[in-house]
């Protein structure tokens, strides 16, 4: 009563059909879709991991590049500083050189000016000294100064050594046999003959002697051939004076320059 063989067989068949149909319509499909989804998710996660890794790598790369750039930048900055320092030193050196050059020029200009000034001064001093001397001497002794001059000149001629005499004679023109006597003042006849006599004694022969008044000679007398000159001149004294003045000026100028240099420093 409880169990029926036909029903059992029918139910077994029903169950097997149900297994087949559910397998076909439900389990296979659902399992496949679930597995597919799982694979897709796994794939996506792997992709995400790969992307993350790539991003990490990219980040590392970027960091490395940034560090490189920073390093390069630092290097460039250091180089630029170095260059700037070098340039600065160069400019300073150039400037210093220029300053030195200008200083030198300036000093040369000063020296030139000083030389010119000294020359003028000398000229002026000589003239003044001469005029004053002459005035004073003429006032005091009249013709006596000129005579004294001539006498000194004659003494000088008399003091000439043999070599000097020969040297003087050698320069007298053989054809013309002329000697020029220049004086800063007009010689008297007596003095002229006296000079002529002395010269002829030195030369030992007759020569043509021309007397001439030359204002160029500040105060003195000279005899000259074409190549030789014997003179007594106040210029000789003035040369000494000039030397003294020059020396004094130079010392003063350099002292001034040193003071200025110290000031600029």
């Amino acid at each position: 009563m409880l169990i029926d063989s036909f029903t059992i067989i029918a139910q077994i068949i029903n169950f097997l059909i149900l297994v087949y149909l559910l397998k076909r319509f439900l389990f296979n499909r659902i399992i496949k879709i679930m597995d597919d989804r799982e694979m897709q998710i796994t794939g996506r996660m792997q992709d995400a991991d790969a992307a993350k890794e790539a991003a990490q790598k990219e980040l590392e790369e970027q960091r490395r590049i940034r560090e490189e750039l920073q390093q390069k930048w630092n290097e460039m900055l250091a180089q630029a500083k170095k260059d700037a320092q070098k340039k600065r030193e160069e400019l300073v050196r150039d400037a210093r050189e220029k300053i030195d050059e200008e200083q030198k020029n300036w000093r040369e200009a000063i020296l030139k000016q000083r030389t010119a000034f000294l020359r003028d001064l000398r000229h002026l001093s000589c003239e003044q000294v001469c005029q004053i001397s002459r005035k004073v001497l003429s006032d005091l002794a009249g013709k006596k100064l000129e005579n004294q001059l001539i006498e000194n000149f004659l003494i000088q001629l008399g003091k000439l050594t043999k070599e000097e005499k020969d040297d003087f004679i050698r320069f007298i023109n053989k054809d013309e046999r002329k000697i020029l006597v220049n004086s800063s003042f007009q010689l008297t006849r007596e003095k002229e003959s006296e000079i002529r006599k002395t010269l002829e004694e030195i030369i030992g022969d007759k020569v043509e002697i021309n007397f001439k008044v030359s204002p160029k000679l500040i105060c003195g007398i000279e005899t000259r051939t074409e190549g030789k000159k014997i003179s007594w001149n106040i210029e000789n004294y003035l040369d000494g004076l000039e030397e003294q003045l020059k020396k004094a000026f130079t010392e003063i100028s350099f002292q001034e320059l040193d003071v200025e240099k110290k000031k600029t420093k």
């Binding site: 409880l2 029903t7 059992i8 067989i9 139910q11 077994i12 169950f15």
Partner: peptide
């Protein structure tokens, strides 16, 4: 039904 449960058990 015992028939059904038997059928399932046999399966």
């Amino acid at each position: 039904s015992l028939s059904t449960t038997s059928a399932l058990a046999i399966c």
